[in-house]
Design a protein around this nucleic acid. Structure first.
Ligand SMILES: [Zn+2]
Ligand SMILES: [Zn+2]
Ligand SMILES: [Zn+2]
Ligand SMILES: [Zn+2]
Lengths: 135, 135
DNA sequence: CCTAGAGATGACAATCATTGTCAACACCTA
DNA sequence: TAGGTGTTGACAATGATTGTCATCTCTAGG
């Protein structure tokens, strides 16, 4: 069902390593363009296209979480848990907490069944102000 | 808090009437481009820009629901209820059911509080196959 | 340690939904 | 009915993402 982590990622390259290390050092969701800019500033000659492709590959492999801004842009973040989960994101500083939603999962299933729907999936994001940004 | 339904909509024009009637006759979510194409096919000379602007105005006024496709496109649908609700959409035929999620709202508030977050909002969509499309 | 060739890269062009512009137009009220 | 103001629509501009393709580089073999 889930793809092997290395599908479409046959080789290990310095570009992929750089992106991965950058992701590991960052807690918040970042756009491909942001990551590209950061890498260039630190001396890398990596291309924007490569950043896009690599992040997509990481996402396909389940290595990163993807979320979409209201504007439609893709944001990426290193994903620890392999299990299904959702995100509580600070809209000010980007701090993100991964949360499981058993209650929601159950509710979703019930609602779907009540209306005769099958094969139901869902998208869910929480966004607010974290403790420090609240002050 | 919520804006008056007519803000940014001072006048009544045949274009707005046409769009509204089209929305009233359709149960599923449609894109601005789809609606524009339909209107043109039925003889209207309405411009694409106008369709975009009008749908946005309707959305701002809370007259229509907006949802985003995975690809990022905006879809619009006439919205009956003024209250907060979510959607259960058939990914095959587009049939849509509006559902309230008191359970989810409560859960969201609790999770947010546990992590010290304030001013928390959320996005939630359910998508599956409706009864007829399931067969 | 070499080498071949599949994979990967990056500069650049192309896509495409959406937004910006602005002159011409059409509501609505006085 | 006339005017000014909100609206419209053709067209250009935007901007993130994707497509292209010649060049480069891993890495498995030899
Ligand atoms: Zn914060
Ligand atoms: Zn879930
Ligand atoms: Zn259906
Ligand atoms: Zn809700």
């Amino acid at each position: 069902m889930s793809k092997p982590p290395t599908e479409n990622m046959a080789r290990s390259t310095k570009q992929r390593t750089a992106i991965l290390e950058l992701l590991e050092s960052d807690d918040a969701f970042r756009s491909a363009q942001d990551l590209h800019a950061i890498l260039r500033e630190s001396g890398s000659k990596i291309g924007l296209t490569t950043v896009y492709r690599t992040l997509q590959a990481f996402a396909d492999a389940g290595m990163v979480d993807v979320m979409r801004l209201p504007g439609g842009d893709h944001l990426y973040r290193l994903c620890g848990a392999e299990e299904h989960h959702h995100h509580l994101v600070c809209r000010s500083c980007g701090k993100t907490v991964e949360v499981a939603g058993p209650t929601v999962e159950r509710w979703a299933g019930k609602v779907a069944a009540e209306h005769g729907f099958t094969d139901v999936g869902h998208t869910l994001e929480l966004h607010g102000l974290c403790a420090s940004c609240s002050k």
